[in-house]
Structure formats: structure tokens, C-alpha cells
């Protein structure tokens, strides 16, 4: 009971702080728009997918990937804010309180996941621009998956930040961990067309399964007119051409295991913190 209150307290502070800062709030709304309109639209006019069937343009393909990107960046920053907390002294206040380090890490991860999921909601509202239609049930499922992914990523951020003493180190993490995680996740190009060695790396990247799950869900309630008459679900078409590879159950299973491992790593990293 006391642990739950501690988790809630940490979560509440994370959430308050994240919606309070104007720059973050602006970023929260503007970033997805920017990704979608500039990156998505820009690339769509230059690229066609070799493997894509008629109805899937690059913008549709990218859409779930952009959701994944926004989840990844928002949550890794939320986790990394542990470094700021240390730098500005607030972490001491938390660490000297009679709450377990696990509760602190968990509250932080849930807080980051909440912010990232809100950003996903904003992105999903742009679905019509992309030409994807969503039902309430599908949106709910997407949000669950989004929460799970961002919980895992925030925990990763906490696990790294808990051991880090300076902000400089964080730039390294961004360049050598977060960017590769993103580029290898299948968000920008499908796994099926990647060279063999990269396929292996992509299968190792846990975010690949997140993007795969998001893509499956985002495409699941859009009907595409077939050239030969009749309609088909976008997700079925995408699956047939290898743009979606695994079942939702398998993807979610992988993400859940990864999330649990990372949450434990986050808690451990704070136990070592001074």
C-alpha cells in the first residue's frame, strides 16, 4: 500500500512537470506534426515501396513508425531526466525518503510512459491525414501497446541515467543507442528488403516488435479497394507482402518481457545511486 502511494507520488510529479513546461508542451504537439508532415510527406514524394501493394504508400507505411519514433524519443528523455534530477539535487530528496528505489524507478517509468502515450494520442488524431481509419477499439489497443513500449524505453532511460554522472554521457547514448534502435526498428524501411546482416540486427532490436505491433494495429481497420474489385484490410495486404511479420500476441509478448527486464534494470540502477 505504501509502495503504491510512493509510485503514485513519483508518477504525479513526473506528469505535472512534463505538462507544466511550455517548451515541452509545444514539443509534444509540434513534434509529431513535424515528423509526419515533413518527414512523412517529404519522403513519400521521393520514395515508393518496392514491396508494397497498391494501397500502401510510403506515408501510410511510415505512420506507425512515426508513432514509434515519438514514443522512443519522448520516453528516453523522460527516463534521462533522472540525470537532471541528480544534477539539480532533487534526486537526493527522493533517495533519502523512506521509499524503495524500485518504487522510485517504477513511478518514473510510468510517468514517462504516460507523457509518451498522450503524445501518441495526438498523433493518432492525424490518422485521417494519412488516409488511415481507426475504430475506438483499435485506438484503445494501440494505446496499450504504446504505453508498454514507452514504459520499457523510459525504464531503459532510467537504467542508463541512474549510473551516469554527467549530461555529456547522455549525448553518446542518444547517438550510439537510441538512433540505431530507431533506424533498425523497421520504422523507416521494412525488414524484408534489408540486407541479411541488417535483418539480424533488426530482429535483435526490441523496438522492431513494437513497430510491428503498431503497424498491425494501425492498419487493421482500414479497408483498401482492390484493383480487381472488392475490398481488403490494409493489415492483410501488409502482412501478405511482409510489411507486418509477427502476430500481435508474439510482438506484445516480446515487448512485455523486455519491459520487465528493463524495469528491473532501472530499479537496480537507482539502488546503486548515491
Amino acid at each position: 500500500m505504501q509502495a503504491i502511494q510512493a509510485i503514485y507520488t513519483i508518477w504525479l510529479r513526473e506528469f505535472k512537470v512534463s505538462i507544466r513546461e511550455r517548451s515541452r508542451l509545444v514539443a509534444m504537439f509540434a513534434q509529431p506534426l513535424l515528423y509526419l508532415l515533413v518527414v512523412g510527406k517529404g519522403l513519400t514524394s521521393a520514395m515508393t515501396l518496392r514491396t508494397a501493394p497498391g494501397g500502401i504508400d510510403y506515408l501510410k507505411f511510415m505512420f506507425p513508425g512515426i508513432i514509434g519514433m515519438s514514443l522512443l524519443f519522448t520516453s528516453i528523455f523522460a527516463g534521462a531526466s533522472t540525470i537532471w534530477d541528480r544534477e539539480f539535487g532533487f534526486l537526493k530528496e527522493v533517495l533519502v525518503a523512506p521509499v524503495s528505489r524500485g518504487a522510485v524507478a517504477l513511478g518514473k517509468s510510468l510517468g514517462g510512459a504516460t507523457t509518451a502515450t498522450i503524445q501518441a494520442i495526438i498523433l493518432l488524431a492525424l490518422a485521417p491525414v494519412v488516409g488511415v481509419s481507426l475504430t475506438a477499439a483499435v485506438v484503445a489497443k494501440i494505446l496499450v501497446v504504446a504505453f508498454l513500449i514507452s514504459f520499457a524505453v523510459t525504464s531503459l532511460g532510467v537504467a542508463i541515467a541512474g549510473r551516469m554522472k554527467s549530461m555529456q554521457g547522455f549525448q553518446m547514448i542518444m547517438n550510439f543507442l537510441v538512433m540505431p534502435l530507431y533506424f533498425l526498428s523497421g520504422a523507416m524501411f521494412p525488414l524484408s528488403t534489408a540486407p541479411g546482416w541488417m535483418k539480424i540486427l533488426m530482429r535483435v532490436d526490441p523496438l522492431t516488435y513494437g513497430v510491428d505491433a503498431l503497424r498491425g494495429l494501425v492498419f487493421s481497420s482500414t479497408l483498401i479497394q482492390l484493383p480487381l474489385g472488392g475490398t481488403q484490410r490494409l493489415s492483410v495486404l501488409a502482412r501478405a507482402t511482409g510489411l507486418i511479420r509477427w502476430s500481435l500476441g508474439f510482438d506484445v509478448g516480446v515487448i512485455t518481457v523486455v519491459a520487465l527486464v528493463l524495469a528491473a534494470a532501472g530499479a537496480m540502477s537507482l539502488s546503486g545511486a548515491e
Binding site: 510512493a6 503514485y8 512537470v17 527522493v94
Partner: peptide, 19 residues
């Protein structure tokens, strides 16, 4: 220093009281 500057005085205390 060990306050959260982005919270108000009262919020800092509430946070502490809950912890």
C-alpha cells in the same frame, strides 16, 4: 539545493508529505 524548481512551494511540500 534539493528542491524541484518546476513545482510550487506547496507542491514540493505535498510531494514530500506523500513520500
Amino acid at each position: 539545493p534539493s528542491l524541484d524548481n518546476r513545482l510550487t512551494a506547496e507542491e514540493n511540500l505535498q510531494f514530500h508529505a506523500m513520500l
